[in-house]
């Protein structure tokens, strides 16, 4: 396959996923909360553009609604909400210490290679132009999981959680041109509720622990502790 023989659309559909993958790596490396949220919003924007592009070419009209949902939730609402929390919790000056950043990024690369390996039999089946990107969407999901595991900050973990939802949305988009509308609406509703609940939790955690460092949550163990 030569890149120059592809149509403009196909070229774009190859470039956009790689940009999305790039944002996933950027999320892994970023240690400032506000920048983290900004990158998340950029990822959402790229996702929206990809959706519109796929909708234009495939003539799947329900994808326009998906694009609108993605834009409203992933570009506007969730980043706005998270930024709001960061300011209210007075965390916008703090930088989080990431342990072993080089190791985490190398692990990320390994995950991408692993995703390509797993997706090999699936890609051979697909007839869609977007099929090359199934591996990337799987990598996005796994990279977001890595982000949740690597971070100790509750808000960073939530960004990872939401980025994982992005990866899943992307997977559905590229492998099947999106899920049936009713399912997509349901998922969007769940994400919305989750985002609001996470906000409630930030304050509860802060109230009880005086910090958002989840490493400080270590009261529940299997060993007998001094009750009361």
């Amino acid at each position: 396959m030569k890149l120059t023989t592809l149509t403009l659309y196909e070229q774009a559909i190859l470039v956009l996923p790689s940009l999305i993958l790039y944002t996933s790596f950027a999320l892994l490396a970023q240690n400032r909360l506000l920048s983290l949220i900004n990158i998340f919003a950029i990822q959402g924007t790229l996702l929206t553009i990809t959706t519109i592009l796929v909708a234009l070419v495939s003539h799947q009209h329900h994808l326009y609604i998906s694009a609108l949902l993605a834009f409203g939730l992933k570009v506007l609402f969730i980043p706005w909400l998270l930024r709001q929390h960061v300011f209210r919790l007075n965390l916008h000056h703090e930088a989080e210490a990431i342990e072993n950043p080089a190791l985490i990024l190398t692990g990320g690369v390994a995950l991408v290679i692993f995703s390509y390996y797993v997706a090999l039999p699936i890609e051979q089946l697909s007839t869609l132009v977007t099929r090359n990107t199934i591996a990337i969407s799987m990598a996005n999901v796994l990279l977001s999981m890595l982000l949740i595991i690597a971070r100790r900050q509750a808000i960073s973990q939530v960004v990872g959680f939401m980025a994982m939802e992005n990866g899943l949305f992307f997977a559905a988009l590229v492998s099947t041109y999106g899920m049936p509308m009713i399912v997509e609406l349901g998922i969007a509703f769940d994400v919305l509720v989750a985002a609001v609940l996470f906000g409630v939790f930030f304050f509860h955690i802060r109230e009880s622990l005086d910090t958002l460092d989840v490493d400080r949550m270590n009261r529940l163990t299997e060993v007998e502790k001094n009750l009361e």
Binding site: A154, F201, H204, I205, E207, S208, L209, V214, M217, N218, R219, L220
Partner: peptide
């Protein structure tokens, strides 16, 4: 709203 219950819920 005990620290334990919030930890459990977050997990």
């Amino acid at each position: 709203r005990t620290p334990e219950s919030i930890e459990a819920a977050w997990k």
